[in-house]
Write a protein that binds this DNA or RNA. Structure first.
Lengths: 336, 336
DNA sequence: GTGAAAGCGCTAACAT
DNA sequence: ATGTTAGCGCTTTCAC
């Protein structure tokens, strides 16, 4: 497993390492036939330059660290794909850290990535890594947050316009004649979930509707959690006519228990989700939800990060993606 | 963004770099108070050792390269999660390459990962990278294939027992009284799809059933492709009573067109999938499928790879995971 | 157009 | 118990 080095190439080609180096970085001033000899040596030796040795001297690794709570969550895997492809286009590779939303793992990941000397990081953090982020910021370490942002840390952020998006969703329900609306919120330790919750509250308030506190439950962003909390709602003595879910996974969980309870969607209960993951159009009835371009979120994050890296200055730009209401079959119009 | 080096730590602590290095690698022979001084310097400087400089001299990066066709495919994201977690436990990080099944990108990824001097690679390849793999093998480069294997390349492989699994699935259909069975095969450039197809054929043959060639269609492993090919089947003049799908995504696509056509599952057409992704239990009716422990596949792959890396010899162990039939609601027993 | 030498941040003998 | 030195594979002055 011994790797060929630039030195062996140089010897075989009968030139010095610096000439080979020049060749590798296609500098102009090399004799044509020297070039050929070097190329020949490279081919014969199947030489692949070590980008880590290169990074060592250039002090850049062209690697970006990606910290995600759960790569199996389709929302994040779509973002990851956008990130990987975009990074690739710009000549960067990505190291993936999956933290299971565990704050300890998040901190470890940050440390790990620093030791790997990544050029920058993109993260969706759950725990309170504020001190750590502040420190990175103070070092001018390129960092961008995605999906959620930790308040008080001024680094670029790519998020959805969650407040407006949630309002749009809830208003749609209200316009369809719903008054008794529940909210299965996401993990409220995330800004994303808090914003969506706030959008729910504002929409209700602005329409003069009262919020039944027993119908506002916090979930994790998962199917299992949606199942658990929707069950709580169905066990209550009153049942809402509609529920706005913190994301499509939660909505999917809600579907399960509603169906199991012998209730019909949307006749008995209407549901609106958020994110428009592939699942949304597949479950029955197809889920009405707020679409969010996850791939773009990843792409924009990489582009923002690379700007930080290459400009050498850190900013605190906020990129906010719009969402759009996708009307499918899970909401009943009560006026009809 | 200038990083603190071991040298600055040494100066601040008033010792030599080698002492700091010893401290970092917790060698036993250091004076207790020297230790304290070093720790203090490290804390004050917020020093994080460069694992790339370290890797440079030790000639090991503790990084593994992961090459996958599509991280948004839940099958692969589950595998990726198993890989990431296991690698993490063993002190390795993972660089992710998403190739979109594009052979060119696969080759590029291999080259990239070599230049990054990863300790080893885990890959699910689509194209014909045989020459490349043979070369890696000749260099004793640690490599393990997952999900599918390229014939003729003797590297460790972690796959499912796809042939047996497919036979089990098809036999289940046959025992339920089905005779006219279609197969929506996966991408036949993969060994996985070929084995499942072969399992289908064998099961049919062993039961003395004939295969209608118009009912054997090749798909990509995606919902969209399942939609397309299932449509072809429904457009034929005869319709099968059951279809065995190459994976759950294809099955999900089939669901869509069957429902759209006004047909009922399983009354009109029974469906069996493969892999048991989360989706399988969520679609209506819940999909009967062959369960495969994807997380374990990732875990086993990492463990096999680390064995290669640490033993310094490459083997060609084949790890074959069993599958199990999960009976849900998508198959009708025609005898009842 | 090409080579020699220094140095990126670290570890590992070899000294003391 | 600690310091000195060489060197990992590369790029980059600075010579010639």
């Amino acid at each position: 497993m011994k790797k060929t080095t630039i030195r062996e190439v140089a010897e075989r080609a009968g030139v010095s390492v610096s000439t080979v180096s020049r060749f590798l970085n296609n500098r102009p001033d090399i004799n044509a036939e020297t070039k050929e000899r070097i190329q020949k040596a490279i081919d014969e030796l199947k030489y692949v330059p070590s980008s880590i040795a290169r990074g060592m001297v250039l002090n850049k690794t062209n690697t970006i660290g990606l910290i995600l709570p759960d790569i199996t969550n389709p929302y994040f895997s779509s973002i990851a794909r956008g990130i990987q492809h975009t990074a690739d286009q710009y000549g960067y590779s990505v190291i993936l850290c999956d933290t299971e939303s565990n704050p300890g793992k998040e901190l470890n990941s940050i440390k790990l990535l620093r030791s790997k000397r990544v050029s920058g990081m993109i993260a969706a953090l759950s725990g309170d890594c504020k001190d750590e982020l502040l420190h990175l910021k103070s070092e001018n370490f390129p960092f961008v947050q995605i999906d959620r942002n930790i308040p008080g840390v001024e680094v670029p952020t790519v998020t959805a316009d969650n407040l407006l998006s949630a309002k749009t969703a809830v208003n749609y329900l209200i316009e369809a004649g719903h008054r008794e609306i529940a909210h299965l919120a996401g993990d409220l330790s995330t800004k994303t979930a808090r914003n969506r919750f706030q959008g729910f509250e504002e929409a209700m308030k602005e329409s003069g509707l009262s919020i039944n506190r027993e119908w506002v439950l916090e979930c994790e962003f998962s199917i299992a959690s949606g199942i658990e909390k929707m069950s709580c709602i169905l066990e209550g003595n009153q049942i809402p006519t509609a529920v706005f879910c913190g994301n499509d996974l939660i909505a999917t969980g809600a579907y399960q228990v509603i169906k199991t309870a012998g209730l019909k969607i949307p006749e008995d209960i209407s549901i609106v989700g958020h994110d428009d993951i592939e699942l949304a159009s597949i479950i029955t009835p197809a889920l009405t939800t707020m679409a969010l371009d996850k791939y773009s979120m990843g792409q924009l994050a990489v582009e923002a990060l690379i700007r930080e890296i290459e400009d050498g200055v850190t900013t605190n730009n906020e990129i906010i993606l719009g969402t759009s209401l996708i009307i499918r079959e899970s909401v009943q119009n009560r006026y009809k």
